[in-house]
Amino acid sequence: MNEIIEIIGAVITLIGAIFLFLGALGLVRMPDVYNRIQTGTKATTLGTMLTLVGIGIIHLDWYGKILVLIVFVLVSNPISSHVLAGAAHYIGIPLSKRSVVDKMSKKPVLTVKKQTNITETSEKEETKQN
């Protein structure tokens, strides 16, 4: 019985490791910054969660620390990716050529004087795409 529980935990750890690998693969394959943030920082969140849960199933007496670690990863990870995406849009990194719509470049991110330059370039990009 104990053996079966340990094997279940190991399989969950393996699934988490595969998700981490897929996240890194997406980081290499995706065409622009925003899609890299999508696959990079969120597939890896589930991967880390599942890996830690599997370790916690194998060693049942570590569950408290594992739970605290999972909560910290879950809370801190979206904030970092949100701030990174906002900063990337603020310094004017364009979306990839395959993008369908950009509702945000019409409105400047922050009202700073230098911002006009950036919006002009992104509007040029849009007209080029059209």
């Binding site: 925003y34 879950l74 809370v75 979206p78 990716s81 949100h82 995406a85 719509v101 509702k103 945000m104």
Partner: peptide, 30 residues
């Protein structure tokens, strides 16, 4: 905003009052 960011495929780029700007990996409705 955190839940939207945590589900892969959607990413909150900017929060402005009632309006969220969201980057989708697969846009269905514009």
């Amino acid at each position: 905003a955190n839940s939207i960011t945590l589900t892969p495929g959607t990413l909150t780029v900017k929060v402005e009052g009632d309006t969220f700007f969201i980057h989708c990996i697969n846009v269905e409705h514009t």
